[in-house]
């Protein structure tokens, strides 16, 4: 089943369509996260998890839903370097400020909404998917070879979970 929608986030970017969201693929993502094989890296010499973040991440033990747990990993791997919490203070010289996404959203919402995505409770699946696959201003879009449809489903589950 494919649900097609048209969301224009930035004037001038063209139409965006949402990919299919089958229960099978969600089940596959759950299974992958349970058996810990949710990585494309096959060679033993390779890093156990590709991530756009310099440090190993800690799992969130409070998350019991496997899909949401995988979503939290995806957030750590693909989102946190821009959308994480602002550090209390800077270590060493300051060239450009950490957390560009959080800073941009802080300037945009001016306190009306949380600047950190993980603290938002108003995000919809459609909006998250649109931003990830179509980009938003200086945030580029991401290909399935960087962030698979399964991982996107998990990310959506994490960011839209009941709290």
């Amino acid at each position: 089943m494919t649900i097609r929608r048209f969301v224009s986030l930035v004037p001038g970017t063209h139409r965006y369509g949402m990919r299919g969201s089958g229960a099978l693929r969600i089940a596959a993502a759950v299974l992958a996260s349970l058996v810990g094989t949710a990585t494309a890296l096959a060679d033993p010499a390779s890093s156990p998890g590709s991530a756009w973040w310099p440090l190993s991440a800690e799992p969130d033990e409070a998350l019991t839903n496997p899909l949401e747990r995988r979503g939290r990993e995806v957030f750590d791997q693909r989102c946190r370097a821009c959308h994480g919490a602002l550090p209390d203070e800077i270590f060493g010289p300051l060239f450009v400020s950490p957390m560009p996404g959080t800073r941009a959203l802080r300037d945009r919402y001016r306190g009306e909404l949380p600047a950190e995505l993980e603290r938002r409770t108003d995000l919809s699946a459609a909006y998250i998917e649109a931003v990830v696959r179509d980009g938003y201003l200086s945030m580029p879009f991401f290909r399935p070879t960087e962030l698979s449809d399964d991982d996107l489903e998990a990310l959506i589950a994490y960011l839209t979970r009941d709290r």
Binding site: C82, V96, P98, M99, P100, G101, R103, A104, D107
Partner: peptide, 8 residues
């Protein structure tokens, strides 16, 4: 990815 801070 800090360099994107200058590009909002």
């Amino acid at each position: 990815l800090n360099v994107f801070s200058g590009q909002a």
